[in-house]
Every structure is written in C-alpha cells, then in structure tokens.
Amino acid sequence: MSTVLEYHDLTVAYHTRPVLWDVDLSLPDGKLVAIVGPNGAGKSTLLKATLDLVPLSSGYVRVFGTHYDKARGRVAYVPQRESVDWDFPSTVLDVVMMGRYGKLGWFRRPSAEDRAAALDALKKVGMNSYADRQISRLSGGQQQRTFLARALVQDADLYLMDEPFAGVDAVTERTIIAILHELRDAGRTVVCVHHDLQTVPEYFDWVVLLNMRLIAAGPIEEVFTTEHLNHTYGGRLAILESAATSLLRRNRGART
C-alpha cells in the first residue's frame, strides 16, 4: 500500500479568512475516501489545493510523491455541478470529450479514438442515448453522470470528486457508487467530498474528518465514531479562528 496523497502543514486562507489550518494527512492508494465536515470546513478547498487551484499560505501537497504538475495525467477532477454554467452551448458528448483535453495538451484535436472513449464512458454511466442532448436540458442526476463520464474517460489513477451525490436521484446515486466501487476494486483511489453522513459507512472505506483543521482520518471502523463526529460538527473553533484571522490580517497590513 503506498501513499497517493500527502499533505503537510497545509494552511490555506482566502484573504484574511482561514479555511484550512495546519493540515497533516496521508492517504493510501486503492481506497474509497470520504471527506466529511460542516459547511465551510474547507473540504472543497482541500481538493482545490491538491489540484494547485488555490494558493497555499504554508505547507505542501504531494500527489503520487511529487508536485501536482508532474502527476497531472494520473488525476481526474469532478467539480461541483454549480461551478459550471450549464447554459453553455454544448452536448453531453462534447463535455465528456473535454476530459481527454488534458492528455491531448495544447493545439492537438480530439481524434476518433477520443470520441470512442467518450462514448464508452457514457455507456458506463448509462447516458449513451443522451450523447447529443444539449446540457441545459439535463436533470441534476444526468448532469452528474455526465461529469462522472468525463472523469472516467481520463482513465486516471486518482479521482477527486466534489459532492458527487448532491441533489441526484436514487438511481443515479446507485449508478455512481457502483462505478466508484469498480474503480476501487481495480486499484484506483477515489476521494469524495461527501455531504450525507448516513451513507458514509456504507459507501466508503476511509473517512477524513475536517473542520478547518484535521480532526481525524483513517478506516471507517476506527475513525467514524460518535466522539470524532462530535468534535467535527461541534461548532466552530472560535479561538483558533479569531487568532488565525488576526494573524492573517497582520500579515496583510490590515488595521487590527
């Protein structure tokens, strides 16, 4: 079992607001990991920090033992549905093909092979009859499945997903979790920001409890306990937050 993700002393702040503080975490490969915590706990930010999408105030992230830039081809990202404008003039197939762009790099055009891979991925999520449907005419579950297909088409070793089960119908949820289990069984690693505590033990192997700082991380049986959950959801750490905010404000030269 090797480490696929490593976070050390990770601190991320949005201007003077601390979002992640001093996070130290190692995730092993081949697991289905849930990241869980209250709103604003920094869960999405953790994913974004992994992908080098947000600047780090301190600390570092290692993906497959190296910086994300070098590991890019092995990582697939499924952002939150709301982060995208679904009125964009595009079909389902178009969106799935976008998953191949990273491998193509600048300027090269998608080939027939890419198209076939995209259709394959659509079939896996049960959306192949929707290939030509405009994305604004999809339901929430269909949008999510499109996004999943877009990730599958990248044939990655690590999948980072932000709330893949939010607002989807039961059928879609079952489809998605089945696919994620397949990926895990094939030795891939899947990390999901998850909002529904009820389904964590059923769906996932590992859990990361986050509330601005790391509360606990590890196998479900060990870590997903009432005590840890109380710590996670027991309200914001007023002292830590105000101290951290003070620090950040001072560093920016704001009047305190």
Binding site: D22, R213, A243, S246, L247, R250
Partner: peptide, 22 residues
C-alpha cells in the same frame, strides 16, 4: 490539548501566533 495537534506541529504554528495573540 484542545486540538490534538501532533507535537512536531506545535512549534511552527506557535512561532507565528505568539506575536499576534492578545
């Protein structure tokens, strides 16, 4: 005590905070 942070973390964090806490 309160946050269960590992020992090797405490120092770096406190190095920053010591100047800021009132």
């Amino acid at each position: 005590n309160r946050l269960d942070l590992a020992d090797d973390h405490l120092h770096r964090d406190a190095e920053d905070m010591e100047h800021v806490l009132d």
